[in-house]
Design a protein around this nucleic acid. Sequence first.
DNA 1: TAATATT
Length: 497
Amino acid sequence: MFDKDCGNNQQQTQQQVLQQPPQVQPDRIKLFIGQIPRHLGENDLKPLFDPYGPILEFSILRDKLTGIHKGCAFLTYVHKESAILAQRALHDKHVLPGMNRPIQVKPADTDNRGEDRKLFVGMLSKSQKEEDIKALFAPFGGIEECTILRGTDGTSKGCAFVKFGTHQEAAAAINSLHGSQTMPGASSSLVVKFADTEKERQLRRMQQMAGNMGILNPFVFNPYGPYPYMAAAQQQPAPPPPPPYLVGLNGLNAAAAAAAAAAAANNSNATPNTTGMNGTTLSSPAISMLNGGQGAGGQHNGTDLYNGLTQTYPAHSPDMREQQILYVDVLPQALLGQGLPNGADAAAAAALHTAGYPAAAAAAAAAAAAGLQPYPGVGGAGIYGSPPPMGLVPSMGMSSREGCSISGPEGCNLFIYHLPQEFGDAELMQMFLPFGNVISSKVFIDRATNQSKCFGFVSFDNPASAQAAIQAMNGFQIGMKRLKVQLKRPKDASRPY
DNA sequence: TAATATT
């Protein structure tokens, strides 16, 4: 049958022949090969694919910068029929050594990666199988793929991906099925929506990491505050220079960002059963790679009080939306070897960073290293401007688990809900210092578990600062949660029961 | 309730 095709090609015009050499079928199929062990190269795998016909092109996908094996490949046979044979013979049929899922052999997705026709389905029963999901979605169109997400033990995670042939079919399924029913054992009605795009996934990972890692620096992170608001509202004569501890913090953030980004980008390199976090030291390539990245508006050198290394911190741009990149000259050596997330593929962080994910970089920058040493001064006299009024400074002897806090005047005291679990009084204070003199910060601690209850109080010495903080920080996203920042009600009104 | 990856 191949002879017949060659014959057809010979009948084409001279120009067509030049564009399309006769031995290559114009309708050849490029296959995507997945679940390839990362230690296998092209030559190791060729024997697997050779039996189905002559191969036109076969290449393992590798990271552009690092050359790291991505665990997948593209394969094009000379003949379309070979591709069909190979897919039929191999797809989902073998588990390559070291993998825990079978090899994938299927037509490669093109530019949009099929994302516009791929659905995420949530709130499924754990007992539902691929066939059940297919049956549910079949009325809306042709299903190209249906995958239930499972843990390594094979149990369903209660969600799935379903890929239709067209965007319209997928949309129809959403319209009819989303919220239409509640599956047995599910906590709410069926969720049917378009799957996250690759960028959204990156962001999600970053945010999760930011949330997991705790301390967050609104100076770097929050694209809409606090400065723009403060400038607009003229609550403060001028943005204060970054206090020394924030210079250090930015360095920490940058290092954490490098690590976070590396870990995120590194997911593709993780061996099965391994998550993104391990104790690997942030490797030196991170430093050199990140040195190449210049953040918009970031340039000034400062001296880190911890280690004396040169640092950079954001300039006081009137619009913090400009400041979405990492500001790094030199990562603090003190961070290296502190059990940051896997930085082994740190160059990938740079890749993420330079490949059009400024928001991801910013989100990554929001994550700061665990083990941050509070700068002497946090928790004491005000970092900015004049010290708080006498008698309002939290006593050094006050235990952070006592749950009491000092109130400022009415209109100056904030309730903060949905704090990250890791936040203590000091982190809470750091987060609100940009808005004025924080005279007290208190995270509530559960006595039984010694864990944060994820809410707390912050008090300022004036209502304008409190309002500025609400404006900038209410709704501020940390990880999967959003802060809720409200005025605390006066004492006499705060006893509803 | 979010993943093994798509030049």
